[in-house]
C-alpha cells in the first residue's frame, strides 16, 4: 500500500466510487428531463420564436463554463496552500470540461445570434469575455500538457490559474468599457415579476441542475483517471528501479 503515498487519493477513490453512480444517474435523468421539457413542452417566445429553446443549453453551459474556472481556482489555491494532490488533479480534470462548456456557450450563442442579431459574431462584451475565457482555458490545458513533472506542472498551472483569474476579471471590466454591447441583460434575476415567465424558468432550472451534475460526474471520472495515471507512473518508476 505504500504506493498510495498520500492517504487522500485512496480515500477519494473509495468515496468517489460510491458516489459516482448516483451522480451520473441523477445527471442523466435531470439532463434528459430538463432538455426534453425545454425542447418539446415550452411555447415560443413572441419575439424570438422557437429560438428561445436554445436558452436551455446556452445558459447552463455558460454558467458551468464560469463555475468550472472558479472550481479550478479553488482547487489551485488548495494545492498551493495544502498540497493535496487530488486537488491539483481535480483542477486538471475540470479544465477540458470547462473548455467544452465554453465552446458550447459560444457555438449556441453564435447559432442563436445569426437570426436574432443578424450576425454570427458580434464583439459584444459577453461574447468577447467568453472568447477570452476560452483562450485562458486553452493556455491552462496546454501548460498542463507541456510539463513532464506532475508536481511542477501542478504548481505552474495553479499560479497561472490565480494570475489568469485576476486578468480574466480585469478583461471583463475592460471589455465592458470597450464596447457597451447588445446582449440580453441577466436572464435570471431575483427581482420579482420580470425577465422570464415561469414556464421557461422551471425547465431552465432543471437543465442547469443537469449541467451541474454532469460537470460533477465528468470531473469525478476524470480525476479518477488522473489518479490512476499518477499511480501508473509511480508503479512504472518502481518497476524500472526494481
Amino acid at each position: 500500500m505504500s504506493i498510495w503515498e498520500y492517504a487522500n487519493p485512496k480515500k477519494f477513490m473509495q468515496t468517489s466510487a460510491w458516489v459516482l453512480p448516483w451522480v451520473t444517474g441523477l445527471a442523466f435523468v435531470t439532463l434528459v428531463l430538463g432538455l426534453t421539457w425545454g425542447f418539446f413542452f415550452t411555447g415560443d417566445d413572441y419575439r424570438q420564436g422557437s429560438t428561445v429553446k436554445i436558452i436551455f443549453i446556452h445558459v447552463p453551459a455558460a454558467l458551468m463554463a464560469i463555475n468550472a474556472w472558479l472550481m479550478m481556482l479553488v482547487c489551485s489555491l488548495i494545492w498551493l496552500i495544502r498540497r493535496h494532490h487530488v486537488s491539483a488533479l481535480a483542477a486538471k480534470a475540470a479544465a477540458p470540461v470547462g473548455v467544452t462548456m465554453t465552446l458550447i456557450a459560444l457555438f449556441t450563442g453564435a447559432i442563436w445570434g445569426q437570426p436574432m442579431w443578424g450576425t454570427w459574431w458580434a464583439w459584444d462584451p459577453r461574447l468577447t469575455s467568453f472568447l477570452i475565457l476560452f483562450l485562458f482555458y486553452l493556455g491552462y490545458i496546454a501548460l498542463w500538457e507541456a510539463i513532464e513533472d506532475p508536481d511542477t506542472a501542478a504548481d505552474l498551472t495553479s499560479v497561472l490559474c490565480l494570475v489568469g483569474s485576476v486578468f480574466a476579471l480585469l478583461s471583463r471590466y475592460a471589455v465592458n468599457f470597450w464596447n457597451q454591447g447588445l446582449h440580453q441583460g441577466a436572464s435570471l434575476s431575483l427581482a420579482p415579476g420580470e425577465r422570464m415567465a415561469m414556464t421557461f424558468k422551471l425547465p431552465l432550472y432543471v437543465a442547469m441542475t443537469g449541467f451541474v451534475l454532469l460537470f460533477v460526474a465528468l470531473v469525478l471520472i476524470r480525476t479518477r483517471t488522473e489518479i490512476r495515471a499518477r499511480r501508473l507512473r509511480a508503479l512504472e518508476a518502481r518497476g524500472r528501479m526494481g
Binding site: 425542447f39 415560443d44 420564436g49 422557437s50 429553446k53 467544452t100 457555438f107 449556441t108 447559432i111 437570426p115
Partner: peptide, 20 residues
C-alpha cells in the same frame, strides 16, 4: 413545431449535444 427557426434550434441542440 419549430417554425422558421427549425434549422437554428436543431443546429444549436445538435452542436451542443455533439460536444457533450
Amino acid at each position: 413545431e419549430l417554425g422558421k427557426y427549425a434549422g437554428t434550434v436543431l443546429g444549436a441542440y445538435g452542436v451542443a449535444l455533439g460536444l457533450i
